[in-house]
Design a protein around this nucleic acid. Structure first.
Lengths: 223, 223
DNA sequence: ACCCATGGCGTAACGCTGTTAACTATATGA
DNA sequence: TCATATAGTTAACAGCGTTACGCCATGGGT
Protein backbone atom coordinates (compact mmCIF):
# COMPACT_ATOMS: atom_id res chain seq x y z
CA UNK A 1 0.00 0.00 0.00
CA UNK A 2 2.79 2.38 0.88
CA UNK A 3 4.20 1.88 -2.53
CA UNK A 4 1.02 2.71 -4.35
CA UNK A 5 0.69 5.73 -2.09
CA UNK A 6 4.06 6.89 -3.26
CA UNK A 7 2.90 6.25 -6.81
CA UNK A 8 -0.18 8.41 -6.52
CA UNK A 9 1.84 11.04 -4.70
CA UNK A 10 4.14 11.12 -7.68
CA UNK A 11 1.17 11.41 -9.98
CA UNK A 12 -0.20 14.34 -8.04
CA UNK A 13 3.18 16.00 -7.91
CA UNK A 14 3.72 15.74 -11.63
CA UNK A 15 0.26 17.10 -12.25
CA UNK A 16 1.15 20.05 -10.08
CA UNK A 17 4.41 20.55 -11.92
CA UNK A 18 2.56 20.64 -15.20
CA UNK A 19 0.01 23.09 -13.84
CA UNK A 20 2.67 25.38 -12.47
CA UNK A 21 4.87 25.37 -15.52
CA UNK A 22 1.95 25.81 -17.87
CA UNK A 23 0.41 28.54 -15.76
CA UNK A 24 3.58 30.56 -15.78
CA UNK A 25 3.96 30.21 -19.53
CA UNK A 26 0.34 31.07 -20.22
CA UNK A 27 0.53 34.17 -18.07
CA UNK A 28 3.76 35.25 -19.70
CA UNK A 29 2.84 34.62 -23.31
CA UNK A 30 -0.84 33.86 -23.67
CA UNK A 31 -2.73 30.78 -24.68
CA UNK A 32 -1.96 30.65 -28.36
CA UNK A 33 1.75 31.24 -28.12
CA UNK A 34 2.34 28.50 -25.61
CA UNK A 35 2.75 25.05 -27.10
CA UNK A 36 2.46 21.69 -25.47
CA UNK A 37 6.01 20.98 -26.50
CA UNK A 38 7.29 24.06 -24.68
CA UNK A 39 5.41 23.16 -21.54
CA UNK A 40 6.90 19.69 -21.71
CA UNK A 41 10.35 21.15 -22.18
CA UNK A 42 9.95 23.17 -19.01
CA UNK A 43 9.16 20.18 -16.86
CA UNK A 44 11.66 18.03 -18.74
CA UNK A 45 9.17 15.44 -19.86
CA UNK A 46 8.02 14.42 -23.28
CA UNK A 47 5.05 16.32 -24.73
CA UNK A 48 2.86 13.25 -24.69
CA UNK A 49 3.21 12.87 -20.94
CA UNK A 50 0.98 15.87 -20.44
CA UNK A 51 -1.81 13.98 -22.11
CA UNK A 52 -1.66 11.39 -19.36
CA UNK A 53 -2.78 14.08 -16.94
CA UNK A 54 -4.95 16.33 -19.08
CA UNK A 55 -7.21 15.48 -21.97
CA UNK A 56 -5.91 18.27 -24.17
CA UNK A 57 -4.50 21.76 -24.14
CA UNK A 58 -7.87 23.37 -23.53
CA UNK A 59 -8.58 21.25 -20.47
CA UNK A 60 -5.15 21.98 -19.05
CA UNK A 61 -5.72 25.66 -19.44
CA UNK A 62 -9.19 25.52 -17.98
CA UNK A 63 -7.88 23.74 -14.92
CA UNK A 64 -5.44 26.59 -14.42
CA UNK A 65 -8.13 29.20 -14.89
CA UNK A 66 -10.38 27.52 -12.36
CA UNK A 67 -7.63 27.54 -9.80
CA UNK A 68 -6.97 31.19 -10.39
CA UNK A 69 -10.61 32.19 -10.40
CA UNK A 70 -11.28 30.42 -7.15
CA UNK A 71 -9.02 33.09 -5.68
CA UNK A 72 -11.42 35.72 -6.95
CA UNK A 73 -14.54 34.11 -5.61
CA UNK A 74 -12.71 33.48 -2.37
CA UNK A 75 -11.79 37.13 -2.05
CA UNK A 76 -15.28 38.21 -2.96
CA UNK A 77 -16.84 35.95 -0.38
CA UNK A 78 -14.42 37.07 2.29
CA UNK A 79 -15.31 40.68 1.59
CA UNK A 80 -18.90 39.77 2.37
CA UNK A 81 -18.04 39.37 6.02
CA UNK A 82 -16.33 42.76 6.26
CA UNK A 83 -18.26 45.64 7.81
CA UNK A 84 -19.87 48.28 5.65
CA UNK A 85 -23.09 49.33 3.98
CA UNK A 86 -24.57 47.18 1.21
CA UNK A 87 -23.73 49.88 -1.30
CA UNK A 88 -20.12 49.95 -0.16
CA UNK A 89 -20.04 46.17 -0.38
CA UNK A 90 -21.32 46.28 -3.91
CA UNK A 91 -18.74 48.83 -4.89
CA UNK A 92 -15.95 46.83 -3.32
CA UNK A 93 -17.11 43.75 -5.13
CA UNK A 94 -17.03 45.49 -8.47
CA UNK A 95 -13.66 46.96 -7.65
CA UNK A 96 -12.26 43.61 -6.63
CA UNK A 97 -13.49 42.02 -9.82
CA UNK A 98 -11.73 44.59 -11.96
CA UNK A 99 -8.53 44.44 -9.95
CA UNK A 100 -8.50 40.70 -10.31
CA UNK A 101 -8.78 40.96 -14.06
CA UNK A 102 -5.93 43.44 -14.19
CA UNK A 103 -3.73 41.20 -12.11
CA UNK A 104 -4.52 38.02 -14.03
CA UNK A 105 -5.17 39.21 -17.56
CA UNK A 106 -4.31 35.91 -19.24
CA UNK A 107 -6.62 33.90 -17.04
CA UNK A 108 -9.28 36.53 -17.27
CA UNK A 109 -9.05 36.58 -21.02
CA UNK A 110 -9.18 32.82 -21.17
CA UNK A 111 -12.33 32.70 -19.11
CA UNK A 112 -14.25 35.68 -20.39
CA UNK A 113 -12.66 36.73 -23.66
CA UNK A 114 -12.73 33.32 -25.17
CA UNK A 115 -14.60 33.54 -28.44
CA UNK A 116 -16.65 30.43 -27.87
CA UNK A 117 -17.81 28.51 -30.86
CA UNK A 118 -21.43 28.98 -31.73
CA UNK A 119 -22.58 25.43 -31.70
CA UNK A 120 -22.06 24.08 -28.28
CA UNK A 121 -23.28 26.77 -25.91
CA UNK A 122 -21.14 25.63 -23.03
CA UNK A 123 -23.00 24.76 -19.86
CA UNK A 124 -22.77 27.72 -17.59
CA UNK A 125 -24.27 26.42 -14.38
CA UNK A 126 -21.58 26.01 -11.81
CA UNK A 127 -19.00 27.33 -14.19
CA UNK A 128 -16.20 29.18 -12.52
CA UNK A 129 -17.05 32.47 -14.17
CA UNK A 130 -20.71 32.22 -13.25
CA UNK A 131 -19.84 31.87 -9.59
CA UNK A 132 -18.06 35.22 -9.57
CA UNK A 133 -21.02 36.84 -11.26
CA UNK A 134 -23.32 35.28 -8.73
CA UNK A 135 -21.55 36.91 -5.82
CA UNK A 136 -22.07 40.24 -7.52
CA UNK A 137 -25.73 39.42 -7.85
CA UNK A 138 -25.96 38.78 -4.13
CA UNK A 139 -24.41 42.15 -3.38
CA UNK A 140 -26.76 43.92 -5.72
CA UNK A 141 -29.69 42.09 -4.16
CA UNK A 142 -28.60 43.24 -0.73
CA UNK A 143 -28.66 46.82 -1.96
CA UNK A 144 -32.16 46.36 -3.27
CA UNK A 145 -33.27 44.91 0.03
CA UNK A 146 -31.74 47.75 1.98
CA UNK A 147 -33.48 50.21 -0.30
CA UNK A 148 -30.26 51.74 -1.59
CA UNK A 149 -31.12 50.93 -5.16
CA UNK A 150 -34.22 49.86 -7.01
CA UNK A 151 -34.70 47.67 -10.02
CA UNK A 152 -37.47 45.79 -11.76
CA UNK A 153 -35.18 42.85 -12.36
CA UNK A 154 -32.18 41.99 -10.28
CA UNK A 155 -30.68 39.78 -12.96
CA UNK A 156 -30.93 42.57 -15.48
CA UNK A 157 -29.15 44.96 -13.17
CA UNK A 158 -26.49 42.43 -12.26
CA UNK A 159 -25.81 41.75 -15.90
CA UNK A 160 -25.60 45.44 -16.71
CA UNK A 161 -23.07 45.91 -13.92
CA UNK A 162 -21.14 42.85 -14.99
CA UNK A 163 -21.06 44.03 -18.57
CA UNK A 164 -19.64 47.39 -17.56
CA UNK A 165 -16.86 46.14 -15.35
CA UNK A 166 -16.10 43.34 -17.75
CA UNK A 167 -15.76 45.86 -20.54
CA UNK A 168 -13.40 48.02 -18.58
CA UNK A 169 -11.32 45.06 -17.53
CA UNK A 170 -11.21 43.75 -21.07
CA UNK A 171 -10.22 47.07 -22.58
CA UNK A 172 -7.54 47.81 -20.03
CA UNK A 173 -5.97 44.40 -20.39
CA UNK A 174 -6.19 43.95 -24.14
CA UNK A 175 -6.16 47.38 -25.73
CA UNK A 176 -2.66 48.42 -24.92
CA UNK A 177 -1.68 51.30 -27.10
CA UNK A 178 -4.95 53.11 -26.54
CA UNK A 179 -4.41 56.34 -24.62
CA UNK A 180 -6.45 55.56 -21.55
CA UNK A 181 -6.58 57.95 -18.64
CA UNK A 182 -5.06 56.62 -15.43
CA UNK A 183 -6.68 53.25 -14.63
CA UNK A 184 -7.47 54.17 -11.04
CA UNK A 185 -9.26 57.30 -12.11
CA UNK A 186 -11.11 55.54 -14.87
CA UNK A 187 -12.24 52.72 -12.63
CA UNK A 188 -13.42 55.11 -9.94
CA UNK A 189 -15.30 57.17 -12.46
CA UNK A 190 -17.06 54.19 -13.98
CA UNK A 191 -18.11 52.92 -10.57
CA UNK A 192 -19.29 56.41 -9.64
CA UNK A 193 -21.43 56.64 -12.74
CA UNK A 194 -22.85 53.15 -12.36
CA UNK A 195 -23.78 53.48 -8.73
CA UNK A 196 -25.14 56.97 -9.19
CA UNK A 197 -27.15 55.67 -12.10
CA UNK A 198 -28.60 52.85 -10.08
CA UNK A 199 -29.44 55.14 -7.18
CA UNK A 200 -31.17 57.66 -9.39
CA UNK A 201 -33.45 54.89 -10.62
CA UNK A 202 -35.14 55.00 -7.24
CA UNK A 203 -36.74 58.32 -8.07
CA UNK A 204 -37.20 57.76 -11.81
CA UNK A 205 -37.15 54.07 -12.69
CA UNK A 206 -38.08 54.70 -16.31
CA UNK A 207 -35.74 57.24 -17.80
CA UNK A 208 -35.59 55.82 -21.27
CA UNK A 209 -37.76 57.19 -24.05
CA UNK A 210 -39.78 54.55 -25.97
CA UNK A 211 -36.72 53.74 -28.05
CA UNK A 212 -36.68 55.09 -31.58
CA UNK A 213 -37.44 52.87 -34.55
CA UNK A 214 -33.88 51.91 -35.47
CA UNK A 215 -34.46 48.16 -35.46
CA UNK A 216 -31.29 46.23 -36.11
CA UNK A 217 -31.45 43.22 -38.33
CA UNK A 218 -31.55 39.95 -36.43
CA UNK A 219 -27.91 39.16 -36.17
CA UNK A 220 -26.23 35.98 -37.24
CA UNK A 221 -23.22 35.62 -35.10
CA UNK A 222 -20.52 33.09 -34.33
CA UNK A 223 -17.09 33.46 -32.92
CA UNK B 1 -2.82 51.02 -72.08
CA UNK B 2 -6.26 49.49 -72.32
CA UNK B 3 -4.65 46.16 -71.67
CA UNK B 4 -2.90 47.21 -68.51
CA UNK B 5 -6.18 48.71 -67.40
CA UNK B 6 -7.80 45.35 -67.82
CA UNK B 7 -4.95 43.85 -65.87
CA UNK B 8 -5.38 46.11 -62.91
CA UNK B 9 -9.12 45.63 -63.10
CA UNK B 10 -8.55 41.93 -62.82
CA UNK B 11 -6.25 42.49 -59.90
CA UNK B 12 -8.85 44.56 -58.12
CA UNK B 13 -11.57 42.03 -58.87
CA UNK B 14 -9.60 39.13 -57.53
CA UNK B 15 -8.77 41.11 -54.45
CA UNK B 16 -12.48 41.71 -54.00
CA UNK B 17 -13.24 38.04 -54.50
CA UNK B 18 -10.75 37.13 -51.82
CA UNK B 19 -12.16 39.71 -49.46
CA UNK B 20 -15.72 38.54 -50.00
CA UNK B 21 -15.01 34.84 -49.70
CA UNK B 22 -12.83 35.32 -46.66
CA UNK B 23 -15.29 37.68 -45.02
CA UNK B 24 -18.11 35.21 -45.36
CA UNK B 25 -16.02 32.40 -43.94
CA UNK B 26 -14.72 34.48 -41.05
CA UNK B 27 -18.22 35.56 -40.13
CA UNK B 28 -19.52 32.02 -40.34
CA UNK B 29 -16.75 30.28 -38.47
CA UNK B 30 -14.43 32.74 -36.84
CA UNK B 31 -10.83 33.68 -37.39
CA UNK B 32 -9.10 30.62 -36.06
CA UNK B 33 -11.24 28.04 -37.78
CA UNK B 34 -10.83 29.54 -41.22
CA UNK B 35 -7.68 28.49 -43.03
CA UNK B 36 -5.98 30.06 -45.98
CA UNK B 37 -6.48 26.85 -47.88
CA UNK B 38 -10.23 26.91 -47.37
CA UNK B 39 -10.43 30.52 -48.53
CA UNK B 40 -8.43 29.59 -51.61
CA UNK B 41 -10.72 26.66 -52.25
CA UNK B 42 -13.71 28.96 -52.22
CA UNK B 43 -12.35 31.25 -54.89
CA UNK B 44 -10.84 28.34 -56.78
CA UNK B 45 -7.28 29.57 -56.64
CA UNK B 46 -4.24 28.11 -55.00
CA UNK B 47 -3.58 29.13 -51.39
CA UNK B 48 -0.43 30.99 -52.27
CA UNK B 49 -2.29 33.32 -54.59
CA UNK B 50 -3.80 35.05 -51.61
CA UNK B 51 -0.31 36.08 -50.56
CA UNK B 52 0.02 38.06 -53.77
CA UNK B 53 -2.75 40.32 -52.50
CA UNK B 54 -2.31 40.24 -48.74
CA UNK B 55 0.81 39.96 -46.67
CA UNK B 56 -0.62 37.28 -44.39
CA UNK B 57 -3.78 36.03 -42.79
CA UNK B 58 -3.85 38.77 -40.19
CA UNK B 59 -3.62 41.53 -42.77
CA UNK B 60 -6.37 39.96 -44.83
CA UNK B 61 -8.61 39.83 -41.83
CA UNK B 62 -7.81 43.36 -40.79
CA UNK B 63 -8.70 44.63 -44.23
CA UNK B 64 -12.08 42.98 -43.86
CA UNK B 65 -12.57 44.44 -40.42
CA UNK B 66 -11.74 47.91 -41.61
CA UNK B 67 -14.30 47.68 -44.36
CA UNK B 68 -16.93 46.50 -41.94
CA UNK B 69 -16.09 49.08 -39.33
CA UNK B 70 -16.25 51.90 -41.80
CA UNK B 71 -19.94 51.06 -41.96
CA UNK B 72 -20.18 51.73 -38.25
CA UNK B 73 -18.40 55.05 -38.33
CA UNK B 74 -20.45 55.97 -41.38
CA UNK B 75 -23.69 55.22 -39.57
CA UNK B 76 -22.50 57.07 -36.50
CA UNK B 77 -21.58 60.14 -38.49
CA UNK B 78 -24.85 60.09 -40.38
CA UNK B 79 -26.75 60.00 -37.09
CA UNK B 80 -24.98 63.22 -36.20
CA UNK B 81 -27.03 65.07 -38.77
CA UNK B 82 -30.35 63.72 -37.52
CA UNK B 83 -32.48 65.96 -35.32
CA UNK B 84 -32.56 65.47 -31.57
CA UNK B 85 -31.08 66.63 -28.32
CA UNK B 86 -27.41 65.99 -27.58
CA UNK B 87 -28.39 63.48 -24.94
CA UNK B 88 -30.58 61.60 -27.41
CA UNK B 89 -27.72 61.69 -29.87
CA UNK B 90 -25.37 60.21 -27.35
CA UNK B 91 -27.78 57.47 -26.50
CA UNK B 92 -28.35 56.66 -30.14
CA UNK B 93 -24.63 56.52 -30.69
CA UNK B 94 -24.14 54.05 -27.87
CA UNK B 95 -27.08 52.04 -29.08
CA UNK B 96 -25.75 51.95 -32.62
CA UNK B 97 -22.36 50.83 -31.43
CA UNK B 98 -23.85 47.88 -29.55
CA UNK B 99 -26.15 46.92 -32.38
CA UNK B 100 -23.23 46.95 -34.74
CA UNK B 101 -21.29 44.59 -32.54
CA UNK B 102 -24.24 42.22 -32.32
CA UNK B 103 -24.65 42.21 -36.06
CA UNK B 104 -20.97 41.71 -36.83
CA UNK B 105 -19.67 39.71 -33.90
CA UNK B 106 -16.72 38.20 -35.75
CA UNK B 107 -15.46 41.54 -36.98
CA UNK B 108 -16.13 43.13 -33.63
CA UNK B 109 -14.27 40.39 -31.85
CA UNK B 110 -11.38 40.67 -34.25
CA UNK B 111 -11.05 44.38 -33.67
CA UNK B 112 -11.73 44.67 -29.97
CA UNK B 113 -11.43 41.24 -28.48
CA UNK B 114 -8.09 40.52 -30.02
CA UNK B 115 -5.73 39.62 -27.21
CA UNK B 116 -2.89 41.75 -28.50
CA UNK B 117 0.60 40.72 -27.69
CA UNK B 118 2.21 42.71 -24.97
CA UNK B 119 5.30 43.87 -26.75
CA UNK B 120 4.25 45.91 -29.69
CA UNK B 121 1.49 48.17 -28.39
CA UNK B 122 -0.12 48.66 -31.77
CA UNK B 123 -0.36 52.24 -32.95
CA UNK B 124 -3.86 53.39 -32.19
CA UNK B 125 -3.97 56.76 -33.88
CA UNK B 126 -6.18 56.57 -36.90
CA UNK B 127 -6.96 52.95 -36.18
CA UNK B 128 -10.39 51.91 -37.30
CA UNK B 129 -11.54 51.16 -33.78
CA UNK B 130 -10.31 54.47 -32.46
CA UNK B 131 -12.38 56.37 -35.01
CA UNK B 132 -15.58 54.84 -33.71
CA UNK B 133 -14.62 55.73 -30.18
CA UNK B 134 -13.87 59.25 -31.29
CA UNK B 135 -17.38 59.80 -32.59
CA UNK B 136 -18.68 58.78 -29.19
CA UNK B 137 -16.36 61.30 -27.65
CA UNK B 138 -17.79 64.04 -29.81
CA UNK B 139 -21.31 63.15 -28.76
CA UNK B 140 -20.37 63.16 -25.11
CA UNK B 141 -18.63 66.49 -25.58
CA UNK B 142 -21.78 67.92 -27.13
CA UNK B 143 -23.73 66.88 -24.05
CA UNK B 144 -21.23 68.59 -21.82
CA UNK B 145 -21.43 71.73 -23.88
CA UNK B 146 -25.23 71.72 -23.77
CA UNK B 147 -25.06 71.28 -20.03
CA UNK B 148 -26.85 67.93 -20.06
CA UNK B 149 -23.98 66.22 -18.34
CA UNK B 150 -20.91 67.32 -16.46
CA UNK B 151 -17.49 65.80 -16.17
CA UNK B 152 -14.02 66.80 -15.08
CA UNK B 153 -12.50 64.92 -17.99
CA UNK B 154 -14.25 64.19 -21.23
CA UNK B 155 -11.81 61.43 -22.16
CA UNK B 156 -12.40 59.71 -18.87
CA UNK B 157 -16.15 59.79 -19.38
CA UNK B 158 -15.89 58.64 -22.97
CA UNK B 159 -13.72 55.75 -21.95
CA UNK B 160 -16.09 54.76 -19.17
CA UNK B 161 -18.99 54.75 -21.61
CA UNK B 162 -16.99 52.86 -24.16
CA UNK B 163 -15.97 50.28 -21.60
CA UNK B 164 -19.56 49.69 -20.60
CA UNK B 165 -20.99 49.23 -24.05
CA UNK B 166 -17.97 47.26 -25.15
CA UNK B 167 -18.46 44.95 -22.22
CA UNK B 168 -22.10 44.38 -23.00
CA UNK B 169 -21.37 43.79 -26.65
CA UNK B 170 -18.57 41.40 -25.81
CA UNK B 171 -20.59 39.40 -23.33
CA UNK B 172 -23.62 39.12 -25.55
CA UNK B 173 -21.59 37.99 -28.51
CA UNK B 174 -19.17 35.63 -26.80
CA UNK B 175 -20.86 34.27 -23.70
CA UNK B 176 -23.53 32.19 -25.28
CA UNK B 177 -24.88 29.78 -22.77
CA UNK B 178 -25.13 32.42 -20.08
CA UNK B 179 -28.75 33.09 -19.14
CA UNK B 180 -28.96 36.71 -20.11
CA UNK B 181 -32.22 38.60 -19.89
CA UNK B 182 -33.60 39.76 -23.22
CA UNK B 183 -30.87 41.73 -25.04
CA UNK B 184 -33.12 44.68 -25.82
CA UNK B 185 -34.12 45.03 -22.20
CA UNK B 186 -30.56 44.63 -21.01
CA UNK B 187 -29.22 47.20 -23.44
CA UNK B 188 -31.91 49.71 -22.55
CA UNK B 189 -31.29 49.21 -18.88
CA UNK B 190 -27.55 49.70 -19.18
CA UNK B 191 -28.01 52.87 -21.21
CA UNK B 192 -30.56 54.10 -18.68
CA UNK B 193 -28.17 53.56 -15.83
CA UNK B 194 -25.21 55.12 -17.61
CA UNK B 195 -27.02 58.24 -18.72
CA UNK B 196 -28.77 58.64 -15.41
CA UNK B 197 -25.42 58.24 -13.73
CA UNK B 198 -23.81 60.90 -15.90
CA UNK B 199 -26.70 63.29 -15.36
CA UNK B 200 -26.63 62.88 -11.62
CA UNK B 201 -23.01 63.94 -11.64
CA UNK B 202 -24.18 67.43 -12.41
CA UNK B 203 -25.52 67.82 -8.92
CA UNK B 204 -22.91 65.73 -7.14
CA UNK B 205 -19.74 65.41 -9.21
CA UNK B 206 -17.87 63.60 -6.46
CA UNK B 207 -19.93 60.69 -5.24
CA UNK B 208 -17.10 58.35 -4.52
CA UNK B 209 -15.72 57.98 -1.01
CA UNK B 210 -11.93 58.35 -0.73
CA UNK B 211 -11.52 54.75 -1.85
CA UNK B 212 -10.64 52.26 0.86
CA UNK B 213 -7.13 50.96 1.25
CA UNK B 214 -7.40 47.81 -0.81
CA UNK B 215 -4.42 48.52 -3.03
CA UNK B 216 -3.96 45.87 -5.67
CA UNK B 217 -0.50 44.76 -6.51
CA UNK B 218 0.89 46.43 -9.61
CA UNK B 219 -0.14 43.95 -12.23
CA UNK B 220 2.16 42.27 -14.67
CA UNK B 221 0.07 41.52 -17.69
CA UNK B 222 0.57 40.26 -21.20
CA UNK B 223 -1.67 38.68 -23.75
C1' DA C 1 12.11 -17.42 -8.21
C1' DC C 2 9.75 -16.83 -12.20
C1' DC C 3 6.19 -14.80 -15.22
C1' DC C 4 3.13 -11.78 -16.74
C1' DA C 5 0.37 -7.70 -16.41
C1' DT C 6 0.26 -3.08 -15.61
C1' DG C 7 1.48 1.64 -15.39
C1' DG C 8 4.48 5.50 -16.79
C1' DC C 9 6.78 7.36 -20.19
C1' DG C 10 9.20 8.19 -24.81
C1' DT C 11 9.58 7.83 -30.04
C1' DA C 12 7.66 8.36 -34.20
C1' DA C 13 4.19 9.73 -36.83
C1' DC C 14 -0.33 11.76 -38.66
C1' DG C 15 -2.85 15.45 -40.38
C1' DC C 16 -3.19 19.96 -40.10
C1' DT C 17 -1.61 24.87 -40.08
C1' DG C 18 0.59 29.52 -42.12
C1' DT C 19 4.02 30.66 -45.10
C1' DT C 20 7.97 30.61 -48.56
C1' DA C 21 10.97 29.08 -52.45
C1' DA C 22 11.11 27.78 -56.86
C1' DC C 23 8.92 26.91 -61.06
C1' DT C 24 5.74 27.61 -65.23
C1' DA C 25 2.98 29.75 -68.42
C1' DT C 26 1.25 33.79 -70.36
C1' DA C 27 1.50 38.17 -72.31
C1' DT C 28 3.82 42.43 -72.97
C1' DG C 29 7.20 45.87 -74.96
C1' DA C 30 11.35 46.61 -77.80
C1' DT D 1 11.32 37.43 -82.40
C1' DC D 2 13.24 37.62 -78.10
C1' DA D 3 13.76 39.17 -73.35
C1' DT D 4 11.19 40.43 -69.53
C1' DA D 5 7.70 41.01 -66.30
C1' DT D 6 3.49 39.27 -64.37
C1' DA D 7 0.19 35.95 -62.33
C1' DG D 8 -0.33 31.80 -60.76
C1' DT D 9 0.96 26.97 -59.34
C1' DT D 10 3.39 23.06 -57.11
C1' DA D 11 6.19 21.47 -53.58
C1' DA D 12 8.03 22.01 -49.49
C1' DC D 13 9.28 23.72 -44.63
C1' DA D 14 8.70 24.26 -39.90
C1' DG D 15 5.63 24.02 -36.49
C1' DC D 16 1.31 22.74 -34.24
C1' DG D 17 -2.06 19.44 -31.27
C1' DT D 18 -2.69 14.90 -30.87
C1' DT D 19 -2.39 9.69 -31.24
C1' DA D 20 -0.53 4.94 -31.99
C1' DC D 21 2.70 2.15 -30.41
C1' DG D 22 6.82 0.27 -28.24
C1' DC D 23 9.77 0.02 -24.23
C1' DC D 24 10.99 -0.93 -19.62
C1' DA D 25 10.75 -1.08 -14.71
C1' DT D 26 7.93 -2.45 -11.19
C1' DG D 27 4.19 -5.46 -8.48
C1' DG D 28 1.51 -9.22 -7.52
C1' DG D 29 0.31 -13.99 -8.32
C1' DT D 30 1.91 -18.62 -8.64
Amino acid sequence: MGVSDRRTRHRVNLRREILDAASQLFVEEGYQRVTMRRIAERIEYSPTTIYLYFKDKAELFQAICEETFSQLTGTLERLEAAPGTPLAHLREGLQTYIDFGLQHPAHYAATFLRTTKGGEASHYDGSIGARAVDTLRQRAAACVESGDIHTTNIDMTTQALWASIHGLTALLTTEHGFPFVAPKVLIDHLLDVLIAGLRSQIAAPRTSPPRPAHTPKPFSFID
